[in-house]
Amino acid sequence: MTMADLFRLGDKEFTSRLILGTARYPNPQVMMDSLRASGTELVTVAIRRFNLKEKSNDVLDWIKNEFALLPNTAGCYTAKEAIFTAELAREALETNWIKLEVIGDDETLMPDVVELLKGAEELVRLGFTVLPYCNDDPITCRKLADIGCAAVMPLAAPIGSGAGIRNPFNIQIIRELVTIPVIIDAGIGTASDAALAMELGADAILLNTAISRAEHPVMMANAMRHGVEAGRLAYLAGRIPETLFAERSSPSEGIVRLA
């Protein structure tokens, strides 16, 4: 018996619960091979100034229509910049989906909550499907949900750090507080991090560097696919409670004793 476990996000449905970034791969072919190996159906892209000297280097020439696109507002420091970038993305890519990223500084790349909330509110008002990269802060997540975001995307650890889930308790609280999808975005280092995030109740994982900078990106993409699937299944299966002492699994009756 199999039951479709579809991931509903905005007005779309996905079979994969892995969203991948397209940056920092050794080359575009490895990127494509990794995206395919991961099973992803949705990939993020940045919006950048057209480089008049390097016209041929176009990520869309590689991605074509193979994956749905999620443009981001990476590099924006204010709500105003992020809204402008989102409007450009909507025009360029003909999607109203936006990964809203409003950071506070270059060292931590952590979200500026005040600007993030302001940007989210305006973008929802403008009809965007807003997917905000946010702190693992339950109250911020609840506010983003109340504003009308399509998901919340709390970080596990700083972007690109590969440090794993620094605060699993907050992720669980966030899962309890909001009814919209929770997507763990940033900080995943390896497949067990992805599995743990899913076991904690995340609906999906968004990652980039853990695959693109792995020694063997395509192999890691495959590992992440399995990690996400394993974690999701374990979450749905319902794990046993933890106990301090042992609980024997073999019967205690009929144990052979020496006379």
Binding site: G21, T22, A23, I47, R48, R49, N72, A74, A92, G160
Partner: peptide, 9 residues
């Protein structure tokens, strides 16, 4: 300003 998609995370 002229922009397009580029590789991003």
């Amino acid at each position: 300003e002229i922009v397009r998609a580029s590789q991003g995370g």
